[in-house]
Design a protein around this nucleic acid. Sequence first.
DNA 1: TTGAAAGCGATACCAA
DNA 2: TTGGTATCGCTTTCAA
Lengths: 348, 348
Amino acid sequence: MTISKSKSQPASSKASITIVDIAKLAGVNPSTVSRALSGSSAVTAQTRARITDIAQENGYVANHNARMLRSRRANQILVIVPNIAAFSHPEVILGIEEALEEHNIGVIVGSTKDNEERELALARQLITGAADGLILLNGRLPSELGELPQYNRRIVAISRPVLSPGIAFIGIDNQQAAQEATLYFVSIGRKRILHMGGPEQSPIFAARAQGYRNAMRQAGLDGIIDLQHLPAFNMVAGRQAMRDILNRRQLPDAILCASDELAFGAIQVARELGISVPQQIAFIGFDNHPVGEAFSPPLTTISVPRRRMGFLGAQTLLQSIQDDRPISDFQLLPYEFLVRASCGGSSW
Amino acid sequence: MTISKSKSQPASSKASITIVDIAKLAGVNPSTVSRALSGSSAVTAQTRARITDIAQENGYVANHNARMLRSRRANQILVIVPNIAAFSHPEVILGIEEALEEHNIGVIVGSTKDNEERELALARQLITGAADGLILLNGRLPSELGELPQYNRRIVAISRPVLSPGIAFIGIDNQQAAQEATLYFVSIGRKRILHMGGPEQSPIFAARAQGYRNAMRQAGLDGIIDLQHLPAFNMVAGRQAMRDILNRRQLPDAILCASDELAFGAIQVARELGISVPQQIAFIGFDNHPVGEAFSPPLTTISVPRRRMGFLGAQTLLQSIQDDRPISDFQLLPYEFLVRASCGGSSW
DNA sequence: TTGAAAGCGATACCAA
DNA sequence: TTGGTATCGCTTTCAA
């Protein structure tokens, strides 16, 4: 089904007011109206004023589609996110909106649930010209676009890198962050450090796991590396994993969770089963979920500059489109290690 | 600035493949290609198959803008949210996407930060035909649309009602929910019940406050109604409000928070200042934030069927557009009262 | 500085 | 069932 009224007529009941109508009212040619309203310099201040007034009075707004068709420009950027309900993506989008706002470029968001078909459908928005550029938060280039490298200059990846070359990326160094967090555990005397990781195939979680491994090796603890990759990184997965862990004979004394949500779920279960946090098991999360600060105990975590990532990503994309050449470098932004009570740190 | 390359040429480097190209390749008329690809019945299965193949082989995708211009149909719905970073809106969007998916209608999301200008810019997407319909989660009709009642049939409000008549609404009965929650406090023996409300001008929070008042009156406690409207409903506001409350000589023994986030912040502060929850003060939140279950103590709350609201809202909109007549009724969906430890309920 | 006219790419009539 | 063609509303050359 498509949207349409029962009559096979065009959908808008009354043809809305067009540039021709304004031209007639102003007693000029449509092209003059076009120039006046789109800010061309080749028009007298006088005529522009008159036309602008008439347009305003009559509530004229340019037909977006006609404008796009003719000028081959959409003034819209499409953001592809895997799951709009995950708390982290919307904050990136906020940054993107901020960067594009002043340029009068709109943002549209498509959520894919990691469904390839949906990704493809959205990618077409770029090919068909409904969007001028693409920002990928899902870490995957829709297959069709992989075969059309001429679009690379119109694509930027944020947060999760895309493996395809020639596509700019803005994110943080997840490996280093995980390494730093693990070493912090070591520095406060924890040894049996477990890493509750996210899906292994995700570059982000792979990098975090690698950082954990590096740190353990660096601390001479490679003999007791204890790493598990979970199929998800939400609270449900964290609860399940924690139940399994608490069935062991020897418990870890510290857990580095690949996400704050994993940590929330895990700590909840630990608490329910009478484990004291951080005394018996210390926790560090990842992502700085807003509730982490109010959690009990407040969650130590890595703060990712999501808003800034979005802002820079959008700027990079604009630049890349304008110059018509890909900006392919990786921009790694600084993260912040927020020490709170969940790892026992100072108050221990 | 607008997006364009330095040369004043159209933005796409190579004119992409058009319907005319496919027509030539297939040895038919463009109109036949159009019919074949848009699923018109007036075309042989044979021809359709041939054309479809050729189109696929050549990676043809219809130009969205041209299609829209001619057919006056965008196959897109615009969702306006006040703040995409608030956890509740994305879940509604998920439901909307679900409902529209099978109809091959896309969803675009615009976040406004309650900025009227931004609302207006987005509303224009409807007027200019970039979107076929509008779903408002922000509880406010962009002013321009208020003067164009012919668009009412293309607008649906979810979650927050819009005051303008003729616009369908899907939500829950906030007043009743707040009333029920308050009476629950009464039923477990609490009397000095405070309501930490959200912004007064928001119909949602006004309704919740009214429900609280009704319940207090019903319980014969109208003498000690203790209601405050906060300027926001996030954790920061909750913390601030709680600090003020804890400075009083006599503390409330129960607090109904207008949002879970308010409750998170308030409970955090209470905990920090040595108040025991729920023994000294019991809490009930609103909205069923995903972290509420893992919070300490787990938060009693009202679960709002956000996903379902989105789904129904989108369906209603589709119907309204198709029939070309507004569906103006209010649909109030059932909510769920989730009793957890924060109000001391059973485990008390 | 303005006007005239040629498209942008697809769709939807009317004829055949 | 197909072909021819006008047209959607705007932008952008080219002339005046």
